[in-house]
């Protein structure tokens, strides 16, 4: 067990930002904290990083209590942190920036070039931070979190405000870290990100964990059925289809499927009925549906709920 949190509470005056949450993070996994802005993600991570004091409850990282002074020193030496909205020294280049932070750990033998390759910045090694694009800046920032070869890496919204392409490149980097055996604590408000990367997800809303599990587990539990959407003249086939979960929407029919193998049966029926199929779409539920189902809300690209 790398992280253990039990009944953690954090209050800011009369605002309860984190309200009695408990979870565990296993060694070598990507653990995602998924939730909209203000859910309490940063508050929780920063408690784990020994940057904020918990109001009550227990938080342990690598077996050390975050409230214990000695424990804090041990934790700091063995974790790597990417703060939310972090940016580093504009006028230093990639190598110099990495060296700067390596010195903070007294690590003179840090494999700077190795880190640069790990985040695929080889060609930009001598470019100053301020000349890099948003995606490259973020990759350097992730490399910076690794200068002390940490066992646990905390990434607080590592892809927010990036374009989709840059975001996917960051995902590749995070995948690489997992393969190197790092335990990764990721916060995000992007559903696909948690779905693509995480072994385990905690969905957080207004300081409370509303669901926890593997992405596929959460989806099968809360996401609803796979839908088959047909477009074309439905003729009479509706009668022949399994009665539960068929919906007519203008020129479309949405069929909510119970089991995967019924897809073939339905398609067989459709072709036998002679229906002109203009379009056929299979939509699987995602974490978005899970979140919608659990909270009644959606999260926008900027992380706001609506």
């Amino acid at each position: 067990m790398v992280i253990r949190v039990e009944h953690l509470v954090k209050k800011y005056k009369d605002l309860t930002a984190v309200n009695d949450i408990s979870f565990k993070v296993k060694k070598g996994e990507v653990f995602a904290f998924l939730g909209p802005n203000g859910a309490g993600k940063t508050t929780t991570v920063e408690i784990l990083e020994c940057l904020r004091n918990p109001t009550s409850g227990l938080a342990e990282v690598l077996g050390y209590d975050v409230s214990d002074k000695k424990g804090q020193d041990e934790i700091k030496a063995r974790i790597g942190v990417l703060p939310q909205d972090f940016s580093t020294f504009d006028l230093l280049d990639c190598r110099e920036n990495l060296k700067y932070y390596a010195k903070m750990y007294g690590n003179d033998n840090c494999d700077i070039d190795g880190l640069i390759s790990l985040v695929a910045l080889d060609e930009k090694a001598k470019s100053r931070y301020k000349t890099l694009s948003g995606g490259l800046k973020r990759r350097l920032a992730i490399a910076i979190t690794l200068v002390n070869d940490p066992e646990v890496v905390f990434l607080d919204e590592p892809t927010s405000a990036l374009d989709p392409k840059a975001r996917r490149e960051i995902w590749t980097v995070i995948e690489g870290l997992r393969r190197k055996g790092k335990t990764i604590f990721l916060t995000t408000h992007y559903m696909e990100e948690a779905q693509a990367l995480a072994n385990n997800v905690c969905i957080l809303d207004r300081g409370e964990i509303v669901a926890e599990g593997t992405p596929s587990g959460l989806i099968s539990r809360y996401g609803g059925n796979t839908n088959l959407v047909l477009q074309g003249d439905p003729k009479d086939i509706i009668k022949d289809l399994p009665t539960a979960g068929v919906e007519r929407l203008e020129d479309k029919i949405k069929i909510s499927l119970k089991e995967e193998d019924s897809v073939r049966k339905i398609l067989g029926k459709i072709s036998r009925s002679g229906m002109e199929l203009e379009r056929l779409e299979i939509t699987r539920p995602s974490l978005e549906d899970v979140f919608l189902k659990l909270t009644g809300k959606r999260i926008s690209d900027e992380g706001a709920v609506h």
Binding site: E49, C50, D73, P83, Q84, D85, F86, S87, T88, G106
Partner: peptide, 12 residues
Amino acid sequence: NHVLRKLATTPL
């Protein structure tokens, strides 16, 4: 730009 916050997570 949260450099200070980052430094606070190092042994410095």
